[in-house]
Amino acid sequence: MTEHKPWLSLPDEDPPERGLAELLAAARVKAEVMASPPWWKRMFAVLRRPPVLALATVMILIGGVIVVGGHHDTASSPAPSLDVPAGPLDTRARSTAPEAPPPAPPPPPHEVRTEKQLDESPHVGGAALDDTKQAAPQVETEEATDSADDRGETLKAGAIQGKKAPLDPLARCRQAAARRDCAAAKACMKDLGKVDVANDATLKSCL
């Protein structure tokens, strides 16, 4: 083997000692630096570790899916998105009652019922008047309850409207007759023109 590779008989030379102390001093300084790396280097080293990188990747993917999914929902159905931030707007909308659908005018059957109530108590005198006074708000209250889906605001508005609403001319005539104010009742009936008072006991008593 040596015959074929004569260069292997070449002796190795020892390196000089020159510069060895310098090397060791530099190594010591570097070792001190490496032994206590700054916090950000340690932090960076931790962040660069494969498990942390994998976790970060997963988090980014999940976040991306959430963002993209939310954006997709918003694009497809805009109505719910308006609902969410409209808390104050909703309150304001409720406070502005006029914008809400106005309560329906008192339906005729109620009036008929009122008339019947008046008819049923023609001879009570003052009591009939009290009944009439009570009846009107009650009727209006019922109407408000029916028309405004139990809303308190609408109920109040309905009550106010009930007080201000002009009475039926015939009912006014009846009220006047019930008060024994026959003059007023007659004038009222005169304004109405032809009125069939045959079946109306209250008016008949005044005539």
Binding site: D12, P15, A31, S36
Partner: peptide
């Protein structure tokens, strides 16, 4: 070990490889 601040480890490396590298 040297990266962790062990100077002796580097000294061993130096002793082990100085001569072959020089040659």
């Amino acid at each position: 070990m040297y990266q962790k601040g062990e100077v002796r480890a580097f000294e061993v490396l130096l002793t082990r490889h100085r001569k072959p590298v020089y040659n």
